[in-house]
């Protein structure tokens, strides 16, 4: 199982802060994950309509969309950051 954790408007649109999922074997990269998630329902479709805008962290470190997700315990999905 992999823990998915959502923040800001990604969290609001999906409607939950986190969930545990069993990822299918064909979901190999971050890009695959975003595509797979989008197909899980209207709320996911709404949150991930522009997948290239979504930032992703694996095990609490930023990664690019081409990064492999093998070995990920926790994957964070969120909009571009606006701290400071």
């Amino acid at each position: 199982m992999t823990k998915l954790i959502y923040f800001a408007w990604v969290r609001e649109r999906i409607g939950k802060p986190s969930e545990e999922v069993e990822l299918p074997a064909e979901v190999k990269t971050v890009r695959d994950l975003l595509g797979w998630l989008k197909g899980r329902g209207e709320e996911y479709e709404e949150a991930l309509r522009f997948p290239e805008a979504i930032r992703v962290a694996i095990n609490q470190e930023h990664v690019k969309h081409g990064t492999a997700i093998a070995g990920a315990r926790e994957i964070g999905l969120f909009p571009p950051m606006t701290g400071g």
Binding site: F7, A8, H62, G76, F78, P80, M81, T82, G83, G84
Partner: peptide, 13 residues
């Protein structure tokens, strides 16, 4: 500060 703005995971509403 420059990197914190773009890379530290904070979001403002």
């Amino acid at each position: 500060m420059d990197f914190l703005k773009s890379n530290a995971p904070f979001w403002k509403k």
